[in-house]
């Protein structure tokens, strides 16, 4: 079978070389950092001044990742149970259903998503009070 060289197909791919003089699209981390995204489903925060300790978040969590535990610090006077959610980040799938059902809108998810700890038990995460 005669071989007919595909000259165009052999030369054209070299046009990719022009990309080598382009600026990179990636960020120069850590000098440059990503802009925060509004509505990002990152780590939970829970405003203790608003939380009423109803347990709706615990009830809807399909991974059973939320436990209601004794609150420390100043809490909402309407929080009759005195309990606030603690989230097991070994089980959480960041679906956000807990924040959807939160009546007083105290439990939310914000942009933080990095966490480092040598203590595995700290994966039972107490949302920051914000």
């Amino acid at each position: 079978m005669a071989w007919t060289p595909d000259v165009k197909g052999l030369i054209q791919p070299f046009t990719a070389l022009k990309s080598s003089v382009e600026q990179p699209y990636t960020l120069n981390y850590p000098v440059e950092k990503r802009q925060d995204v509004t509505g990002y489903r990152g780590f939970h925060v829970n405003s203790l001044a608003l939380c009423v300790g109803c347990g709706n978040c615990q009830e809807i969590c399909m991974n059973e990742a939320i436990d209601m535990v004794e609150a420390t610090g100043e809490i909402n006077p309407k929080n009759a149970s005195g309990l606030v959610p603690r989230i097991d980040y070994g089980r959480c799938c960041w679906c956000g259903l807990c924040t959807d059902v939160c009546g007083p809108d105290s439990l939310r998810m914000e942009g933080d998503y990095t966490y480092v700890s040598a203590d595995a038990d700290s994966f039972l995460y107490m949302p920051k009070d914000r």
Binding site: P5, D6, K8, G9, L10, Q12, P13, T15, A16
Partner: peptide, 14 residues
Amino acid sequence: PEYDRVFFDNAAVR
């Protein structure tokens, strides 16, 4: 079109 030049019309890829 750049993908065409580098991949889809590339003789080696074909």
